[in-house]
Amino acid sequence: MPTTITTTMKAPATMIELLLPPLLAGLAVALVSGPMGAFVVWRRMAFFGDTLAHGALLGAALGLALDISLYVGVVAMCLGLAAALTALQHQRQLASDTLLGIVAHTTLALGVIAISLQTGIQVDLFAYLFGDLLAVGWQEVVGLWAGALVILAMMVWQWRALLSITVNEELAQVEGVAVQRTRLLLMLLLALLIAGAIRTVGVLLITSLLVIPAASARRLTHTPAQMAIVASVLGTLSVLAGLTVSWFANTPVGPSIVVAASGLFMLTLLRKTS
């Protein structure tokens, strides 16, 4: 690394100053995305997560408009959407993917409009859609790590319950697991993660950071815990690779991370499954 820095004519101090906060922020998100992404894959929640992420833009816009934290706006919006979608799924006429398609794109459109209406401060729409990791400051890094550790701690604490309702909700309920409460917890943690990840990869790419490392990990593992941990490792590698590529090739960071994750997924396809 030191040699490359001199060749690109950038002072080491500047590089560390510039790259360390985004790197740490990206790692925090990748770390939690492993186990959370595993649940998204197991419970077939990819489109659901995507819908929450799209809605997150509207939440962020409302958060900014009301002059409260955009994170508060995002979490509130995700939770509201999760509750509304759960209620809507009780009707039988439309399949849930149709419903999710309607909600995802309506909230995204509303979010874009709401962002464009912000007059006071200059808001970069692109940064919300695809992430702006390089603009992350130390304060946010601390917040992201605090959030990441809380989510991880909750998941470890409730691991068996979360896994039980994923295997079979009825069996879990009979065996004394509080199914509704556990499902709600998973939803809340997912909303928190999306709020955190909005700055890293943006609302359009969050689901990929959840799904791709977990999907790659599936072929390499034999137990749920292994899959969650390997997904974290692969997500971390993707962030490292994406940031590196972005630094040297001057590509947008969020998309670079996603492409790196996809590259790792392609590599796992080469492995024969047992």
């Binding site: 894959v41 197991w42 077939r44 068996r160 896994l163 039980s164 994923t166 295997v167 079979n168 009825e170 069996l171 009979v174 065996e175 004394g176 999907a215 599936r218 593992t221 034999h222 137990t223 749920p224 292994q226 899959m227």
Partner: peptide, 29 residues
């Protein structure tokens, strides 16, 4: 009340890597 339940069948998604041993662990550590 501690209940043991044996449903007729149970389908587990292929995306979840789960051995019989881990599956039992979920029911009773």
């Amino acid at each position: 009340l501690r209940v043991g339940y044996m449903p007729q069948h149970l389908n587990i998604d292929d995306s979840l890597p789960l051995t019989v041993d881990r599956f039992l662990w979920l029911g009773a550590s």
